[in-house]
Write a protein that binds this DNA or RNA. Structure first.
Ligand code: MN
Ligand code: MN
Ligand code: ZN
Ligand code: ZN
Lengths: 144, 144
DNA sequence: TCTGTTACTGCAAGAAATCGCAATAAAATA
DNA sequence: TATTTTATTGCGATTTCTTGCAGTAACAGA
């Protein structure tokens, strides 16, 4: 059972309809183990499906995020990017000054997430957390 | 010394020019201890400065975030919101399903942030972290 | 205070993301 | 398989955010 099929079956079980467009979007996002923009996904599908519309891509990505099959983050250039949740687990450390992005282990985060769960009943999904701050290159005497 | 003046002096020290537009934007954001959209800030300033342009508001907000005086987050309705960093410290727990947002203490997060600092040399600014997941209302047997 | 440099602004154009609506097609049912 | 229901699509319009550029004004230096 591929990750792609798992997603499709889960959506079907929730009562969503599986259209060729949705299949192609899920397939594209799953097969590329990277962060893709809606535009990029659209561009990759176009050769196979001439009429697929960018709005459909956005709407499907919204659905995937809402249903927990994908995560949305803000890329270096300010555009939204999407990734499946099978995308290997890590944190993104993004420098607010230079925009550099570092991948970091989230191992030490677990105790805190469990604390949030017991305190608020909120189940954080930590596969793809983005934290902002200053990278080693940009740390300098505080702005006072 | 108000928070507003601290920001202005810090910017001046970094070599940025202090224009009336920038002063009004900083003042507006500081005095409202809330999350404001660029549009909302613009609307509030317009009566006092007829010609102020929305692009200037966006550019100033970018500057404030880059310089660490403000944080940017994605609001319930998908628009970007901004807040000063004097805005009381808390985490945002946002439900990916229903969009509900909870304010949470970030106290327990500190040890993990220190770990990130020593491992990666990255100084996370945790005043306004947004974590996504499922809220108590939306947690249900896994989609499986 | 006056002058020169150039960062900043307003404006208009452009790009990214969302939305309303009529036509279409997924899938449940007979 | 044919029928019915209604979620989903494509398309165009709209909204949100960004960018290029020429004119303006902040502020450093004389
Ligand atoms: Mn990632
Ligand atoms: Mn907040
Ligand atoms: Zn940096
Ligand atoms: Zn919820």
């Amino acid at each position: 059972m591929t990750h792609c099929h798992t997603t499709i079956q889960s959506l079907r079980r929730q009562g969503f309809r599986i259209t060729p467009q949705r299949e192609m979007i899920i397939e594209t996002l799953t097969q590329s183990n990277a962060h893709l923009s809606a535009e990029e996904i659209h561009k990759r599908i176009k050769p196979r499906s001439k009429t697929i519309n960018l709005a459909t891509v956005y709407r499907t990505l919204d659905l995937l995020v809402e249903q927990g099959h994908a995560t949305r983050l803000i890329g270096k250039e300010g555009k939204f990017l999407y990734a499946t949740r099978q995308h290997s687990r890590h944190l993104h450390l993004v420098c607010r000054k230079c925009g550099r992005a570092y991948a970091a282990s989230y191992d030490g985060l677990q105790p805190f997430l469990e604390q949030l769960k017991s305190t608020y009943g909120f189940q954080v999904e930590a596969e793809h957390v983005t934290l902002y701050g200053l990278c080693p290159h940009c740390i300098h005497p505080p702005n006072q």
